[in-house]
Amino acid sequence: MTALARSATAHLWTGMLMVAVLLVWVALPWFLSRSAIDILVFTGIYTIAGLGVSFLLGQCGIVSLAQSGFYGIGAYATAYGTTVLGLPIPVCIVLGMLVSAVIAAAVGVPVLRLSGHFLALATLALAIIAHVLFLELEWITGGTLGIGGIPRISLFGFTFATPFRFYYLVWPSAFALLLAYSLLLRSRTGIALRAMRDAPAAAAVAGIPIASLKVRIFVLSAAVGAFAGSLFAHYVSFISVDSFAIDRAIGFLLIAVLGGVRSIPGTIAGALFVTAAPNYLSRLGDIHPLLFALALIVAVIFLPGGFGGFMANLGAKLSSGGRRPSAPAGG
């Protein structure tokens, strides 16, 4: 009974915390400058793209540097579809996700047979291929000139034209995807993923289809990355190949590592760092790439759980009041 009561109060507290977070989230843009809201919008876009990378790395042990490519596919698909073909925006966004998913499946089937170093370097090679193609396929991408005049998203006559308005589009999307990824993680599929990460041989015996699950998660991550890319294109309304270079791939990876690959909400923290840091450092010149690289090194060595893991540890320590969750005796 006491345990039940305790869990009920715990639920109450988390519920109240959620409401508080929600209120702060709704109110935030009213108190911030335009440039600060702009940073938060980018944080939202990067959270979405970073989620895919983080989940792949944390739950499947796949280091993916290819996300910049899928992000680019989403952006170009919607830019080309709306400006050249004149298709409706939602159709273009879905199209971008589909194209991304199909390419991810075609590439993923052979490439995901690799593991460890080979896999990571293969995804890096994919990112480079994507970048070169974005540059060379000028008739779609506009090459270095890029594509301009990408229309703003509007819903029921409401146009998401300013950072202030876009904030209320990108964050509900990001929250929905955070929730979806958490659901996935807690489902039997999520358990299967963690199982195959821990002991692939035993997972195979349990009937978990390892190879095809990896491809599916990769495809999902690519589609989510393309969605983020589409949002980006509609937000900035001009895109060029510079937005989809290797440093973008590094940025997404850094989001995952900093946020903590086992922590889904941690991604937001990682994304906030990656968007805010360059902004405040820009007066020092091109210093943020160096900062990102050093942050990646330091985080991998000293903070393997990322911000998310760090907070979870801290939370566990505080709530147990020094008591360690011990294994029961006997047996």
Partner: peptide
């Protein structure tokens, strides 16, 4: 006790750092 992945990520980070420093 970093994994194989950590080692690769660290050296990749090093590669980006060198390139970024040269850029700077």
């Amino acid at each position: 006790r970093g994994s194989e992945d950590s080692l690769l990520l660290v050296t990749l980070g090093g590669a980006f750092a060198v390139s970024a420093a040269v850029l700077l």
